[in-house]
Design a protein around this nucleic acid. Sequence first.
DNA 1: ACCTGAACACCGTTCAAGT
DNA 2: ACCTGAACACCGTTCAAGT
Lengths: 188, 188
Amino acid sequence: MVRQPSINAQHRAPLSTERIIEAALQIVDGQGLGRLTMRRLGDALEVEAMAIYHHLPRGKEQLLDGLVAHVAAAPAGESPPGRWQDVLRGWAGDYRGRLMTHAGVLPLVVTRRNPAALTATVASLREVMRRGGIAEDTAAVAAHTLLGYVIGHTALEVRGTNEDGADRAVNWDARFTAGLDLVIRGVR
Amino acid sequence: MVRQPSINAQHRAPLSTERIIEAALQIVDGQGLGRLTMRRLGDALEVEAMAIYHHLPRGKEQLLDGLVAHVAAAPAGESPPGRWQDVLRGWAGDYRGRLMTHAGVLPLVVTRRNPAALTATVASLREVMRRGGIAEDTAAVAAHTLLGYVIGHTALEVRGTNEDGADRAVNWDARFTAGLDLVIRGVR
DNA sequence: ACCTGAACACCGTTCAAGT
DNA sequence: ACCTGAACACCGTTCAAGT
């Protein structure tokens, strides 16, 4: 009689860093960051929590770093066509979308130290402007300003910060676009 | 013989919400948000952790809300003199300073839902611009843009997001001021 | 190499009890 | 009214053991 792999091994894919990060993101998106625990993550992967440590030796720290890398790394395209203003507008819209759909990860973007994702994003934004003929110093300032704006404004949006009276609702799409125009208009 | 209050009652002030928030802020500033636990907070206050629940019935949730309220509520002054541009510049510098000195609270500002502190701050910024003769709609957009920028840029600064090459250090003071000018310049 | 099971030192919070 | 002590249901992580 031929040896059979265990029941588990049959009906599930082998564990991998990618599958772990994806499952974690699903928990965060669906239930919130506070409910992401190693034990629950193990359950979702049909594995004991301790098995995760074999793929992420630095444990939960490494898991959270992985979530940030997965969500916050969105360079402004290699060389999309169009005026630099339009390229930046396109990037900002995409980036805001990512942060919104994975809103639970936002606090991590703000918490983790020096994530490579943010460094790469800033560099990418500067490059877009450099190619657009913007002076080096201006581009450096504008890159941080723009990324800061997108992250900060999205944070306000996620929190649902109302207008003062709380009586009228905010049109966040329009608000974001108008603020984005304000920032791009100020680049010089 | 006169009854003496207990040793503890003699050498410590009675517990109060203010004292609790202050002690918590000290732990966060000194050791980081991750080390703020009810038990450690109790130790710092020379009290059992459970005593805190008498003053904050909603427990740790209420404690964290209190920290955000304490750090993020900085209205742009009742009616400081000067051009609206200068008033906003002054507010932004103060606000950035608060967020930097209590950097551990930043993730909470981004996490807690609809904190009254942020709503009040936005309203205050709009009022400054309204008094400066800025149109209502423009002021509404600019208020969210400015607050978003200050929060987001400070988050980048706290994380120490480097320049792409990582070879040259960023002058964050200059960077922040230049970005602030960019935003204010775009208000119209 | 990859995963499990038991164990350790912590958490937040409840509840009854003390003063 | 204000605080304590014990207890409960969780955490992240280690470590030896299994296959």
